[in-house]
Amino acid sequence: MSTATYTVTGMTCAHCVSAVTSELTALPGVTDVRIDLANGAVAVTSEAPLALGDVRAAVDEAGYELAAADA
């Protein structure tokens, strides 16, 4: 298992959390997504490390911006 933490900007409510969680969970191999709305931290657990471009695309699809990654 691999867990990486990202910072996503623009999330302000439960709907935001749901949209980002839904898009990230759809990525192959993702087993868990945990979001701290207060600071924009998104922890993604997956079977193998995810490509940053894939994570960025999923966050973009949800309508938000990936600001930083701390694998």
Rank of each mutant, 00 (worst) to 15 (best):
T25V: 02
C16A: 02
I35Q: 11
I35C: 05
R34H: 01
S22R: 15
L66Q: 01
S18V: 00
L24P: 06
A41L: 07
H15G: 13
L66D: 02
G29K: 05
E23R: 14
R56E: 14
A58D: 09
H15D: 12
A58R: 08
A48L: 10
Y64D: 02
G40E: 13
V44E: 08
G40P: 08
E47P: 01
H15F: 09
A14F: 04
A41K: 15
G29A: 04
E65D: 14
G40L: 03
P28A: 09
G53Q: 11
A51G: 10
D70N: 14
A62S: 07
S46H: 05
D70G: 12
R34E: 06
V42A: 07
D32T: 07
Y64H: 12
A48Y: 09
Y64P: 06
A26V: 05
E61H: 13
R56P: 01
D60N: 13
V42W: 10
G53F: 11
V59C: 08
T25Q: 12
A14L: 08
A43D: 10
S46F: 04
A48N: 13
G29S: 03
V44F: 07
V59N: 10
A43Q: 10
A43G: 01
A57D: 14
V17K: 14
V33L: 07
L24C: 07
V33Y: 08
V20S: 04
A62P: 05
A68W: 00
V42T: 13
A26Q: 12
Y64G: 01
L66I: 06
A51R: 15
P28T: 03
A62T: 08
G53R: 11
Y64N: 03
S46C: 05
V44P: 04
G53Y: 10
A57S: 15
E47I: 01
S22C: 01
E65R: 13
V17Y: 08
E23D: 10
D70Q: 14
A38V: 01
V42M: 08
V44A: 09
T31P: 01
P49L: 10
D54C: 14
A26G: 06
T21N: 13
A48R: 15
L50A: 03
P28C: 00
C13W: 13
L66Y: 03
A51F: 10
D32N: 08
A38S: 12
G29P: 00
H15M: 12
L27Q: 00
V59Q: 11
L37N: 03
D36G: 02
H15W: 08
T31L: 02
D54L: 15
A69F: 07
L50R: 05
T25S: 13
V55T: 15
P28Q: 05
E47G: 05
G40C: 04
V42Q: 13
E23M: 07
P49C: 09
A26I: 04
V33Q: 11
A68T: 00
L24N: 09
G53C: 11
A38L: 06
R34S: 03
V30C: 09
A41F: 02
E23A: 14
